[in-house]
Structures are given as structure tokens and as C-alpha cells.
Amino acid sequence: MIQRIQSIWLFLAAIALILMLFLPLISKENTTTETEIHTIGLYQDVVGKPGSGQMKEQFTPLLITNIVVAVLCFVNIFNFKRRSMQKRIAIFSIIAIIGFAFWCSIFAQKLPGGIDGAHFDFGAYLPAVAILFCILAIFGINKDERLIRSAERLR
């Protein structure tokens, strides 16, 4: 049962959430500085000087939440014997990812000068991708349940 498709979808959801640790969510460039928000913290670079990035503020609660939600999706892979529990945890993961994305948007407002003129980077879209993967995992779990019910009818 661990080879089922929902395991792959849950693994991809966990990977998408782990990628959020390394990719910027939102960035803004002024004439002298470029500011990026990651789930780890607020980084500021001097324009024209590569490698001059400094962490101005650390977002520890956001970092911990990101890791917990990613681990939740990954650990849910191993609930393959209890499909109803796996489905409930996947639904809870979707709710947790929505809350995490909302919380990321609140932290994005800490960008100096506000979010006016800022652009969203690839990391901002990863929660939506993770939610999509969790929904596809739920569809896979439902398909497994239908398959098992039909096999029990044949007995």
C-alpha cells in the first residue's frame, strides 16, 4: 500500500513546503537595496554587491510552522494502513497550509515601505501547489477505499 499514488502526492506536498525554506516569498527593490522575505526571515542586499545579504529580522515562529506542516505531510505517508485517518490528516494539512499562507502574508507586510511595488516570487505560490498535492492525495485515498470496497464485495 505504501506504493500508492497518494504517497507520491503527499511527498510532493512536503517537498513544496520544504522549498519554501529556501525560496523568497516576496521581494522589493529600491535604488540602493533589495529586500526579500523568506520564511526564515527578512534579508537585505545592497544592489550591485552580490553576497552582501544580511538577515535584518528572523521569523522563528514562521520557520517552525513551515517545518511542522512539511513534516505533517511527510509523516502522513506512513498512515497508509489507516486510510480514513490519512484522509483526515490530509484535510488538516490543507487547513494548516491555508493558515500558514495567511500568516506568511501577515509577515510580508513587514517589508520596509510596505508591499507597494513589491513582487511575489516563486515561494509565494508554493502553498497553493502543496494544497493541490494534498487534494490529489485525498482523491487517491478515496480511489483506494473504492477499490477495497469493490474487492470485499467480490468475496
Rank of each mutant, 00 (worst) to 15 (best):
D45L: 10
G48C: 11
K49V: 12
K49P: 06
P50L: 14
G51I: 02
G51E: 01
G51L: 05
S52V: 00
S52H: 10
S52T: 00
G53H: 07
K56W: 06
K56N: 09
K56C: 05
E57R: 15
Q58C: 03
Q58F: 07
T60F: 04
P61F: 00
L62M: 03
L63F: 08
T65G: 00
N66C: 05
N66S: 10
I67L: 15
V68F: 06
V68L: 05
V68Q: 00
V69N: 07
V69S: 07
V71Y: 15
C73W: 08
C73V: 03
N76F: 08
F78C: 06
N79V: 03
N79Y: 10
N79R: 04
K81S: 01
R82P: 00
R82G: 00
S84V: 12
M85Y: 13
M85L: 13
M85T: 15
K87H: 10
K87E: 14
R88I: 01
R88F: 05
I89S: 12
I89E: 11
A90F: 11
A90P: 15
F92E: 01
F92N: 01
S93D: 07
S93E: 04
S93L: 09
I94G: 12
I95S: 09
I95C: 08
A96N: 02
I97N: 06
I97K: 04
I98W: 10
I98G: 03
F100D: 03
A101G: 06
F102S: 10
F102M: 05
F102H: 01
W103E: 00
W103Y: 09
S105I: 05
S105G: 06
F107L: 01
F107S: 04
F107C: 01
F107M: 02
L111E: 05
L111F: 08
P112C: 13
P112R: 14
P112K: 13
G113S: 10
G113N: 09
G113H: 11
G114L: 04
G114P: 01
I115W: 12
D116E: 13
A118H: 10
H119F: 15
F120L: 07
F120E: 09
D121M: 07
D121F: 05
G123F: 14
A124P: 02
A124L: 05
A124F: 10
A124N: 09
Y125L: 12
Y125R: 08
Y125K: 07
Y125T: 04
L126E: 02
V129I: 10
V129N: 03
V129Q: 03
L132V: 11
L132D: 00
F133D: 03
C134D: 03
I135M: 12
L136M: 11
A137R: 06
I138P: 13
F139D: 11
G140H: 13
G140D: 01
I141A: 05
K143D: 07
K143Y: 11
D144S: 12
D144R: 11
D144P: 13
E145A: 11
E145R: 15
R146A: 03
I148L: 15
R149V: 08
S150F: 12
S150H: 14
E152T: 14
R153E: 13
R153G: 12
